[in-house]
């Protein structure tokens, strides 16, 4: 159930393939893999965004990501999870966050992936500062999520 906070860009689909191979090898007990990739856009609130800086609270971030994944694993029958989150200087088109859930069936994979992402956005201590042509600004709130269905 690894979580990783990284300052270097990562290729999300290569991470999915590598982790799946490392954990499961050729064995096929997982029937469902749900993947969420959050990518940096080049616009927000009507403004062109050139890049952003993602700050986090080292230690607390990893602890809460671990807890979020453990909670999801208690609610749904999951085989494995993987969370990778970028920090530092990020540019449009780069992956910000990757959430992957492997399970036997699709409902657990879909629901747990969404729940992990929603919990991450509401609890994990990350803060975004956008770079615009006119200067920088802190992002002051997340867009509203939506409740996951019950297992």
């Amino acid at each position: 159930m690894p979580v990783s906070v990284r300052s270097a860009p990562f290729e999300p689909y290569a991470e999915v393939a590598a982790h799946q191979h490392a954990v499961f090898g050729g064995r096929g007990q997982f029937g469902a893999t749900a993947v969420f990739v959050g990518t940096m856009r080049d616009f927000n609130e009507g403004d062109a965004v050139q890049g952003m800086t993602l700050e986090h609270y080292p230690g607390m971030t990893e602890r809460h990501l671990d807890d979020i994944c453990a909670t999801a694993s208690g609610r749904w029958p999951l085989l494995e999870t993987l969370v990778i989150h970028r920090v530092g200087e990020i540019f449009p088109g780069e992956a910000i966050v990757l959430v992957v859930v492997w399970s036997a069936h699709r409902q657990a994979a879909f629901d747990a992936c969404r729940e992990i992402m929603e919990a991450l956005k509401s609890r994990a201590p990350f803060w975004k500062k956008e770079r615009l042509a006119t200067g920088t600004r802190w992002v002051t709130g997340n867009t509203a999520g939506y409740p996951a269905s019950k297992p």
Binding site: M117, L120, K121, F126, W127
Partner: peptide, 10 residues
């Protein structure tokens, strides 16, 4: 700290 804003970009 201020309210957190992690995850995908808005």
């Amino acid at each position: 700290f201020p309210p957190v804003t992690g995850g995908a970009h808005a």
